[in-house]
């Protein structure tokens, strides 16, 4: 479980998060909606200690993030925008092994995790391929596999669909849905709710650094007017 307790954060005296409290359960699939600048990215970066709150605190599975960064960062796997800039190695397998290597696991365990993570994202057996030769959708999935190899309880994704075409976007979404069905919590930030909201258990919308809407997709959609979020053409979800 990820818990935010009255978290506030400002960059150069400009408030970006103001008194945000919410919690996300294991296995929940949550969409974090909101316009650019609404505070989504900042909120996500607090979930594993990439930022420190000015006030309030963040807990992962009951432990304050600031107390155990390693536990927080291995429990909350993070995937950023621009997958191209997140890879640390030239080949798929080496890149996915980076996180488990940092945890000091032995080689057999690292290999097992790399194999399993690639299977989960539907790319089994492609360890030795060069990352540059992959399509955008495949790169996104390798980035997700890199986070999964830490065996996190939550996966947090920040606009992972930037630059992806519709089929690639769908294939990434399918992987996320099946991960969530298997018990991994998914927190997905996006400004575009089309064809994702039927997968979600819950929609949280941010506006000016505060939680504006929080509820099941069907109820939340009706309240998103004026928040600059692209919603499905149908009002049903």
């Amino acid at each position: 479980m990820i818990e935010f307790r009255s978290v506030s954060h400002a960059f150069d005296d400009v408030p970006v998060l103001e008194d945000v409290s919410l919690s996300i359960d294991a296995g929940e699939f949550v969409l974090l909606a909101g316009a650019n600048g609404s505070g989504k990215t900042t909120l996500l970066r607090h979930s594993n200690g990439l930022l420190e709150p000015d006030s309030g605190e963040v807990l992962v599975d009951g432990t304050p993030v600031a107390e155990d960064l390693i536990a927080a960062r291995s429990s909350v796997g993070m995937v950023f925008q621009h997958p191209r800039d997140q890879f640390v190695a030239a080949t798929v397998g080496e890149d996915i092994a980076f996180g488990p290597e940092n945890l000091g696991l032995d080689r057999a365990e690292i290999d097992r995790r790399v194999t399993a993570a690639l299977e989960t994202v539907n790319m089994a057996g492609r360890e030795d391929e060069r990352i540059d030769a992959l399509s955008g959708g495949e790169q996104s999935r390798v980035a997700i596999a890199g986070a999964l190899a830490m065996e996190p309880t939550h996966l947090v994704l920040d606009e992972p669909f930037t630059g992806l075409d519709a089929p690639a976007r769908r294939s990434v979404l399918e992987r996320l849905a099946s991960l969530s069905a298997d018990g991994t919590g998914v927190l997905l930030a996006t400004h575009d709710l089309r064809d994702v909201c039927e997968l979600a258990d819950r929609v949280i919308a941010m506006h000016d650094g505060r939680v504006a809407v929080d509820g099941p997709p069907a109820d939340a959609l009706a309240e998103l007017d004026g928040l600059e979020v692209r919603v499905p053409d149908t009002t049903r979800c």
């Binding site: 960064l69 390693i70 536990a71 429990s75 940092n102 945890l103 000091g104 696991l105 365990e109 065996e151």
Partner: peptide, 11 residues
């Protein structure tokens, strides 16, 4: 997690 993490020294 069941792994031995106490010795990890973050950069």
């Amino acid at each position: 997690m069941a792994t031995d993490q106490h010795s990890v020294e973050l950069v």
